[in-house]
Design a protein around this nucleic acid. Structure first.
Lengths: 161, 161
DNA sequence: CAACAGTCGTTTCACGTTCAATCATTCCCG
DNA sequence: CGGGAATGATTGAACGTGAAACGACTGTTG
């Protein structure tokens, strides 16, 4: 499909900027988190999701979905977090295939510390250089894009035709 | 440093949206490129940089810098592209430590095909849901953020104090 | 010109991620 | 109820990436 899908100058700039900003941002924040707390960004995100959940516990699948991680990847990630004592697994009574990841006391404390580093990083590197108007537009625009993508079905449907 | 670096609701939304949009976008575009042409997104980007360069050739280091890739990673990437016949290496006469990556005829053709897929994907998934005003703000705002980050020095200076 | 620090690119190795296969369990339908 | 498809989660191997060490060469300094 779509033969000559040329992008004009602004479109090109927007796309490249998105790619570069997110790449650099993630790289820096990840490095910082790793250096200061021994946590990767995706490990951190899993902890955040757990902390926000009722009883600090969530099913593995849900967690994978919200964290934008593969099931397999989440399994490995939770393995690491469990070894570090930040999370523990619990069996699910109502569906014996499933299991919960639960934030431990240590995990909670770690998250409290790590989030200071992380949020300061987000503010300093992402929010700081922008004015409130830009931030609001980013939130809306990128929110739309993300929502659209989350809706897209998995199998080779859609634009591929 | 920075103790209570809380983010307000819009700031939080902007940050999460950036992360999710870029993650999903890259994942989809990468998969599409891979399925249709056997190229990863970073391989594609290397080809684009080469195509834009005078004589379709660039020094490995420059290439790594512009593609936001580690030197090591670029070496591996160019290895793969070379095996696929899309790029070849040439020695640098004036500095015998260095080498060039050069786009081959096949690489050029592959890029022509792949870019149709890729640009259609960028348009359909990123640009389409946005209006021109939003695109312009994204280009500026994320451009600022990226520029800021590119300036940041490498060793553990900055906010770490 | 000798010595030494710095740069270019590669290599090696450890680690995180992906993919496909697997196991256990639940759901659906006749 | 029984059988097969679907789902939740894990496993293991293959692969890509990052960090550190390395060899080769250059540039500088005395």
């Amino acid at each position: 499909m779509a033969a000559g899908a040329r992008l004009d100058e602004t479109e090109m700039r927007a796309w490249r900027a998105l790619l570069q900003a997110s790449t650099l941002l993630v790289e820096r924040l990840d490095r910082e988190l790793q250096a200061d707390h021994g946590l990767s960004l995706s490990e951190y995100e899993v902890l955040v999701l757990l902390q926000q959940a009722p009883r600090h516990r969530r099913r593995m699948s849900e967690l994978a979905g919200d964290a934008l991680l593969t099931r397999s990847r989440l399994t490995h990630t939770v393995d690491r977090l469990e070894r570090a004592g930040l999370v523990r697994r619990e069996a699910c009574e109502t569906d014996r295939r499933g299991s919960f990841a639960v934030l431990t006391r240590d995990g909670y404390r770690m998250l409290a510390r790590a989030s200071r580093t992380h949020l300061a990083g987000v503010r300093g590197r992402f929010l700081e250089p922008l004015d409130p108007g830009q931030v609001a537009v980013l939130a809306d625009a990128l929110g739309q894009v993300a929502a659209e993508l989350r809706t897209e079905v998995s199998p080779g449907s859609a634009t591929t035709s």
